[in-house]
Design a protein around this nucleic acid. Sequence first.
DNA 1: TATTGTTTATGACCTAAATCATAAGAACAA
DNA 2: TTGTTCTTATGATTTAGGTCATAAACAATA
Lengths: 198, 198
Amino acid sequence: MISEELLKKYRAVEVHLKKKEVLFNVGVNARYFFQVSTGKIKMNNFNEDGKEFIQGIFPPGSSFGEPPLFAELKYPAQAEAVEESSVWRLEKESFFKLLRENPETHLKLTKVLAGRLHYKATMVAEISTESPEHRLLKLIDYFKTHIHKIPEEEEYLVELSRQQMADLTGLRVETVIRTIKSLEKKGVVQLKSHKILR
Amino acid sequence: MISEELLKKYRAVEVHLKKKEVLFNVGVNARYFFQVSTGKIKMNNFNEDGKEFIQGIFPPGSSFGEPPLFAELKYPAQAEAVEESSVWRLEKESFFKLLRENPETHLKLTKVLAGRLHYKATMVAEISTESPEHRLLKLIDYFKTHIHKIPEEEEYLVELSRQQMADLTGLRVETVIRTIKSLEKKGVVQLKSHKILR
DNA sequence: TATTGTTTATGACCTAAATCATAAGAACAA
DNA sequence: TTGTTCTTATGATTTAGGTCATAAACAATA
């Protein structure tokens, strides 16, 4: 997360997005650095027959879509506003200038990328080899401990919908619903008026 | 890739690994920066019933296993020598000193992480939503254009075994073999004495 | 050049999760 | 208050890819 002062200093501008508005598409070249100011942005893919995969959901303060900026690559996914949002947009050149002139910020950003790589490595191994039960528990636990940093013994109320969990784990809604039910029966998660507790 | 002079200057040492030897395990804390000197290292996971997933295969010059170093996390996968290999090993503290004192190297490393994040984002979307055919073609094309940087019109001889392709895409060997055959029938890849050309 | 191991190949069969259909409950807007 | 839409729920059916078994082709080693 880059501070607002710093962003403003390097001439970042705020861009407004309506719910479901797309900020950038798959396959285009990256020209800007983005950081969520308000709302929520997701990065996602669709296959030929419309099945969605969610790469990540970014709350205020998170940057997203930086890799193609560094590696001169095209966006592997699109960015879309989950709800009405605004994002800071910084020109690529200014962004690199900012990094050069603020080594501490560069290191912080490297740490963010490292964290994201860790999440992806975890999830891709899950998705490619594990059962729906295992995948969903891993997802829930990852959000609990790494995203929200909630201590093991404390209760965590999952804020994701069944559909979002499906799109994050490569499953189908029905499978998520059935699996969550069965996890409840086993007592590994609780359900309070459809909300998942763990 | 960090130059050998620089590595030596910061007191990196060379570690020798026999084929199949494990350098570090899942779940342990990262204490060193590693870069392949000779041979080939893979990072991989195994699920309960022994199914493997390959996170990446690293040739000489590539570093690997940096994310937990930055983000204070545990290794999400193990590192194992594919063949007899040697790797440079640099103490965590020396590594960060090196980065601070060599901003250009820090930027180069950030680019490496960005590239790897791009690969993972691409593959996880494939694995979670696409057919075996699509997954394998994407894998082959990714290796052709991004790893080996071979121009579109030139022919690429896939150096991966069917088993490795299976472990990189979350499929089973038999499925890879059958799918490659069917891709050959369709004329989208060629087979020359079992080697795949694209 | 026999032997052992690894990789590629193929058929038969089976199963977990996707698909399809339908509906009830919640949330939101008019 | 009544539509409208989104989310959760559940049963029936289908199917793609996994599993199992067996073998040929090839490579590596003694």
